[in-house]
Design a protein around this nucleic acid. Sequence first.
DNA 1: AAATTTAAAATTGTATACATTTTATGATTT
DNA 2: AAATCATAAAATGTATACAATTTTAAATTT
Lengths: 202, 202
Amino acid sequence: MSQSAYLTAYEAIRDQILNGEIPRGQKLTEDKLASELGVSRTPVREAIRKLEEEGLIKKKKVVNPSETDLRNIFHVRSLLEGDAARSAAEYLSEEKLIRLKECVKIGRNGTVDEIMAANKDFHEIIVQSSNNPFMADVIERMNSIIYLFRKTVVYHNRPFLIDEHEKIYDAILKHQPDQAEELMKKHLRADLEFCLRFIRVE
Amino acid sequence: MSQSAYLTAYEAIRDQILNGEIPRGQKLTEDKLASELGVSRTPVREAIRKLEEEGLIKKKKVVNPSETDLRNIFHVRSLLEGDAARSAAEYLSEEKLIRLKECVKIGRNGTVDEIMAANKDFHEIIVQSSNNPFMADVIERMNSIIYLFRKTVVYHNRPFLIDEHEKIYDAILKHQPDQAEELMKKHLRADLEFCLRFIRVE
DNA sequence: AAATTTAAAATTGTATACATTTTATGATTT
DNA sequence: AAATCATAAAATGTATACAATTTTAAATTT
């Protein structure tokens, strides 16, 4: 194996949580995971710690975020990504504009997996446009939770998802910062509300 | 010793960095720290990892943040604390308003240490008013860097520091959310610019 | 039967040993 | 002398052992 045991453990545990193989609320024990993954406790320990930072695990248990938790996380995400969209509207390279448009296109015609990836890219391109690696880092730390949501909206075909992306793209293209920020915030709010209804029903 | 070795190590290393006992840019080695602190490498390892998350250490070296880094961090802080100030202006309990005012008062009459503490409290009360523990968490993770700055502005008597606090307090008291947000952002920008000039000169 | 206590098992925290990788040093070549 | 390579030293990653703590379950008391 070329990868470090720590990374292997981190990815395996994260994926198992996100896929639902490890159910919400379940307590994780280092020993069990270690033998399952064929590594020792040390790297598992570090992996768990990292997942705790990311908010996927809390007190050794897989989190079961409440509605309030999700609203709180999305509020922060809105502030940051809203600001990033504003930056993008102020300036975005030709090349990134093209990639952004490509994401919209795939969003309309791609397979589910392609749409998942395009959705991720769309937001990442905008975040990176802020040229603020620290901000990107903070958002990166919400990634696991964001992934859960992205899965919900894509797999359940949230209405207007791609239309909203296109509108945001237009605002960025036309250099309308206020517009872009407002649209991004609305977009994320719509994601949140859709997911909340869904998670409650499921 | 009642505290865990991990916490002991974390606090000791953090304090040594913030006090300048461990200079910027210095490489940290687990072994050396472990024997200095009288614990084994394991808890030191975990402490370093946590400090890396907080941004005080990067790639085992004590960070020497560039001007750009500091601007980036403060940009994020502004977005979040600006929003928190807005929340506070919408509603803040009687008790917290009193504590906020007290912070302003100490800012004018207290000793340096008291001012340091009051300054910290002032911002913390406002952040907590947002009722968003997740946001508080994100800000908490910037704490070490923020502490460095607070030290600079307080110890070097930045002009208008307390005046700005008072204006923010007034806006919150009078329920002026836009005002409060704008003033908070200006306040943080002023902190940043003051510190940048200082750090370059020093 | 419910509550309390006690013993055990399980789990985590810490130390240590060993393996692997990285870094520094100095010898050798050009 | 500069560059390249080989070797040693240092540091990190990982595994394992043991200690301390927490959890669980059973036994005892009320």
